[in-house]
Every structure is written in structure tokens, then in C-alpha cells.
Design a protein around this nucleic acid. Sequence first.
DNA 1: TCAATAGTGTCTCTTAGACAATATTGA
DNA 2: TCAATATTGTCTAAGAGACACTATTGA
Lengths: 221, 221
Amino acid sequence: MKELFPIVAADVALFTVLEETLRVLLLQRDNEPQAGAWALPGALLKPETDLSLEHTARRALAAKTRVEVPHLEQVAVFSGPGRDPRGYSVGVLFYALLPADQAPAVAGAKAMDVAWSDVAHLKRPIAFDHREMIALATTRLRQKVVQLALPLHLLPAKFTLTQLQSVFETVTGKPLDKSSFRRRLRDEKNLVKLHGELEGGANRPAQLYRAISSFRFEMKS
Amino acid sequence: MKELFPIVAADVALFTVLEETLRVLLLQRDNEPQAGAWALPGALLKPETDLSLEHTARRALAAKTRVEVPHLEQVAVFSGPGRDPRGYSVGVLFYALLPADQAPAVAGAKAMDVAWSDVAHLKRPIAFDHREMIALATTRLRQKVVQLALPLHLLPAKFTLTQLQSVFETVTGKPLDKSSFRRRLRDEKNLVKLHGELEGGANRPAQLYRAISSFRFEMKS
DNA sequence: TCAATAGTGTCTCTTAGACAATATTGA
DNA sequence: TCAATATTGTCTAAGAGACACTATTGA
């Protein structure tokens, strides 16, 4: 009987950048199956309450997190009889971006079962097919950013151009020329110069910017 | 009770190019709900037999079509309580490409309930949220082609460069310079020159090409 | 003044687009 | 030869990357 209805779930790859590294949020599973292994936050679809699978995804994040993520995007659907021992399952994968300054609020020092893992070196045991999910979500995020979709959702509301470039380089994995990068930013007009300044350890302080209010994290062409 | 389990289905936007127009395959519904309206081919997930939702999608095409489509790709998931009056539904949308020379085999003159509709002018009544699905699948296809993913699956196995350019222009909706286009084709090496020739109504005959055997319809960067 | 980082200017090389010139066929 | 389309070549302009130069701060 259970075979007639698939399990439907939403899983979320929540990314942030810490220490110049692209990281994804993992939770250690308490229960079987795969107790002890690390998994993406996820939740089963509740038809009575969820207006869509995006709602399910947000609910999954809210359950383990206190943070509101601004950006949530579909990546792909994974399906099949062998993904989950509990039965035929359909898993809809999303990805979301979290500014670095909010990352500590998610994985506080207290929690042993929450981790921001470097996507390039996933050393923990990963549950189900979540390793593949992380790889695909990472690729998708990279593609978007390479096509010059500004990953502003990974930055705090106010940021310097150097910080923006650093996030860019971390996500894409490639260095960028400062001059060209700033030329591009000037031409597209997604940024607004603010009139306060920042830091300056022992050097020239940097201008702060914010995104224009209508900014959207979208493809270009 | 039915509320606890969502309906899970795969729908396919099958594209081809006829008369310099990008077209999508529509079927007229026999049964309620929405009898008489036109819908994308689709099928319910059968957990007992479908190894994945891509299988479900292929099965949906096979049911109304005799054609094997080479290329099938996920677009997005649509979900919610209001999409289908039969209950909460989760619909996974795919798109597929069919060479123009195989299009007649699908919608033969006999069938009144099969149509290749111009995606730019959908005049028939469209069932459910399939109009939105068609729009999204079209956008996705366009994006891929704009990024110079050669839409070779829309062409017969052998084709001329002029035919390829024409398909390109039809899908993207924009004219292309012949010289630049051929330069790009030469640089990427996805085509093989054949040594037979074609037509020539009253003019110079065109060289035929085919895709290299390892060709894949993928993003560039 | 020095170290360190922010910000700007200039040069070159690649590439896309415009457009012209040549080639080849049947009628 | 002519009409029609295929194929190739050349010029130009915009953009990306390399790299150097100037600016501003605290120590």
C-alpha cells in the first residue's frame, strides 16, 4: 500500500561564505535511517498546510534555524525507489544563500549537530544521495555567479567592493581582475554608494555599497 | 485521506520547429477535469514501474507518440493544492526536443486531438497551469540556446549550416550574422563535415554536417 | 615616511558584428 | 548570362584582462 504513494520532500542546500570558503549547512541525523550521518535540512510535504514545495523548504529551514533566507531557488528533483529505505521518494532540492554575518546564528557553539561544511572537502559521512545534491546545487550556484548574477545574498546589507569581489572569487573559484570587475559593476547599475565608510586597519578606508532595492538574483540574458 | 498524499506527475513540453516557428506538442483532453482543453502530455508517477520521474516523462511521451526523444531535461516543479481539482498535486516539468522531420509522425493528419502549437501564439484553451509551464520551458530552452548550446536535437541527423542558423534564429527570436555564426561553429568543434551534398533548387548546393558523436546539449561555462 | 589596501587609468588583444566579395549551381 | 544561395574575407568597434599608477589611512 505504501508503495502506491511516494514520499515527497523538500531539501535545502543553504550556502554561506566563511573564511574564504563556500560552505553548506549540514545537520547530523538523530533517527534512523542513517542515524549519525549528515544531511541537508529537509521536510516532508504537508499538503494540509504547505501552499507549495517552496513553503515546505522554508519550513525545513525554520525548524533548525532562526534565520529568514531571502533567496530560495529550485535546483532539481531526485526520485526513485532506492533513495530512501522507507519507500519510493521524490525529493525536491532547493538552494538558499545566507549572509556570512548571520551564519553564526544558525550553527551556534552549543550545537554539536550543526555544521557549516566546506563544499570542496566534505569529510563527514553524508546521508542518502545528499552528496550528489550538494554537488549539483554548488554547480548551479556557480553557474549563476559566473554569468554575473551578483551573489549579494551572501553579503551583509552593506559591503565594500573588495568584499564583493572576494565572495565572487570564492564562489567561482577563480581570481578576478579588480579593474574589470569594478568596470562591470559600474555598467550594470545594481549598486548604490553609501556615504559612510568602513574599517581601515592601517590603510585607506573602503567605500560601502548596498544593492539597489529592486535587485534580483537572476540570469542576465 | 486523499489529502495526505499528493498526486505526483511528470509533464513534458515537447518542442520542434515547423515553418520557422517554435512549436510545442499539445493534446486535447478527453476526460474531466478540463475535458476539451489542451494540455501537455503527462503521466502519473507509478512507483512500481518507474525508476525515476524521467522514466515517467518518457512513458508519457510514448503513450501518445511513437517517437524516441533523444533529449529530456528537467525544468521545474509546480506544486500546490489548487493546481488540479483532484487534490494536492506535484507536477515535474520536463522539456524535450524533436527534429522537424519526425514531427509529422507524432501529429498525423488523422489525429484531431494532437497539435503542434506556436508557442508565441497559443490560441487554444490551455488546461491547468500548463500555459505557465510552456512559458517557463520556452524560456529555459531559449536560455540554453542563447548560451550557444547547439539545438542539434531539433534538426535531422544531417543538416546544412544555413538550416542550423535558421533553427537558432527561430528559437532565440533574433537574427544572427552568418559570418560570426560560422566562426563560432568552427571554433567549437561540435560538427563534422560530411562528403555528400544537398539540394540547390537553382543555386549553389550546401555542405552537409552532422554532430560529433560525443555531442551533448549542455551549458558552456 | 612606510606599509597596506582602495580606487583609477591605460594599453593590448580578443571577439562579435557589419558588410563586402567570391563561388557554385540550375535554368 | 542570371538569379539565388553558399562560403569566405576584411574592417571596425566594444569589451576583457593585464598591469601600472595614484590616493588615503594609521602607525
